[in-house]
Simulated assay, not measured.
Amino acid sequence: MRLILLGPPGAGKGTQAARLVQKHGIVQLSTGDMLRAAVAAGTPVGLKARAIMEAGGLVSDEIVIGIIRDRIAEPDAAKGFILDGFPRTVAQAEALETLLHEAGLKLDAVIELKVDQGALVGRIIKRAEETRAAGQPVRKDDDPEIFKTRLAAYNRDTAAVTPFYAARGQLTVIDGMQPIEAVAQAIDAVLGA
């Protein structure tokens, strides 16, 4: 099973991915985690990435695709994977399509968790207020201004990926505002699981 979960930050992708990993014995592939692992392992692609990251630059699509190519070839990804944080742009989606085709693989599902973005901001503000009231430090990504910046970046770059997959008939949209278990059941229905 190979799938992509799309949706803005806070939509519940991480929650659902963790459940799918456990249920199906597949791996969740986070591009950030893969980049750090490749750099730590000193792979050829990791060495290229390290030089760029140390200089404060953004890693190119070519390098990210190289890391994904290497990672999906590892034995634990043979049963399948969930892509998390990728693709972020149409160019990355096109590159992924080429990579999978060359590897003789295909996506089983592309699922978008559709959410009310205004409600997401409200949810983050409430969570930050509750955390502060409990005397605990607020997580960096729960800061409403940081969250709004992440949401703006998603709307500017990643939201364009949804029409890419819709045009190919690969996209299924699920109401991400439902309770967690209802979202889980809707995903299972899409996956036939």
Rank of each mutant, 00 (worst) to 15 (best):
Val173Asn: 12
Leu83Pro: 10
Ile52Ala: 09
Thr162Ala: 15
Leu83Met: 06
Gln117Arg: 14
Ala160Gly: 06
Pro144Gly: 04
Glu97Ile: 00
Leu83His: 10
Ala37Pro: 08
Gly32Asn: 08
Arg139Ile: 09
Arg71Trp: 10
Asp116Leu: 08
Gly169Lys: 12
Ala77Asp: 08
Met177Thr: 14
Lys140Ala: 15
Gly66Ile: 00
Arg156Asn: 12
Ala95Asp: 02
Ser60Ile: 02
Glu74Pro: 04
Phe86Ala: 01
Ala77Thr: 15
Lys114Pro: 05
Asp157His: 11
Val138Lys: 07
Gly122Arg: 07
Gln117Thr: 14
Arg156Leu: 15
Asp108Phe: 02
Leu171Pro: 13
Lys48Ile: 12
Thr89Val: 09
Thr43Trp: 09
Leu47Met: 13
Ala38Lys: 11
Ala40Ser: 13
Pro137Arg: 13
Ala103Gly: 00
Val45Pro: 07
Ala133Lys: 11
Phe81Pro: 10
Lys126Phe: 01
Gly135Ser: 06
Ala160Glu: 12
Ala40His: 07
Glu112Phe: 06
Lys79Thr: 10
Gly46Ile: 07
Lys148Asp: 01
Asp142Ser: 05
Arg36His: 13
Gly135Tyr: 06
Gly57Asp: 04
Gly57Glu: 07
Gly56Val: 00
Val115Lys: 12
Ile146Thr: 14
Ile111Ala: 03
Thr98Leu: 01
Ile146His: 12
Asp76Ile: 06
Arg88Met: 02
Ala95Pro: 04
Val173Gly: 10
Val161Cys: 12
Asp143Trp: 03
Pro144Tyr: 05
Arg88Phe: 05
Leu171Thr: 13
Lys140Pro: 11
Arg156Trp: 10
Gly122Cys: 02
Glu97Asn: 14
Ile63Val: 12
Ile146Cys: 05
Met177Arg: 11
Gly169Met: 10
Ile82Gln: 12
Asp76Phe: 14
Val173Tyr: 13
Ala78Pro: 05
Gln92Val: 06
Ala73Gly: 05
Leu113Val: 02
Asp116Cys: 08
Gln170Val: 02
Ala128Cys: 02
Asp108His: 12
Lys148Gly: 02
Met34Gly: 07
Gln92Ile: 07
Gly42Met: 13
Ala119His: 12
Asn155Ser: 07
Ile63Met: 04
Leu113Lys: 08
Arg150Thr: 01
Ser60His: 04
Tyr165Ile: 03
Glu74Gln: 15
Leu96Cys: 04
Asp175Met: 14
Asp70Lys: 08
Ala51Trp: 05
Leu151Asp: 06
Val121Phe: 02
Ile63Lys: 08
Asp116Glu: 11
Thr158Gly: 03
Val161Leu: 10
Leu105Ser: 03
Ile111Lys: 05
Val39Arg: 12
Arg139Asp: 13
Asp33Gln: 09
Ala167Gln: 15
Thr89Trp: 10
Ile111His: 03
Ala77Lys: 12
Ala160Met: 11
Gly118His: 04
Arg132Ala: 13
Arg156Ser: 14
Thr149Tyr: 06
Thr158Gln: 03
Ala37Tyr: 09
Arg127Met: 00
Lys106Cys: 00
Arg36Val: 11
Ile174Lys: 10
Lys148Trp: 02
Ala103Gln: 00
Arg132Ser: 04
Val161Glu: 13
Tyr165Asn: 05
Ile68Tyr: 06
Ala51His: 10
Lys140Gln: 15
Pro163Glu: 08
Ala95Ser: 12
Ala73Ile: 01
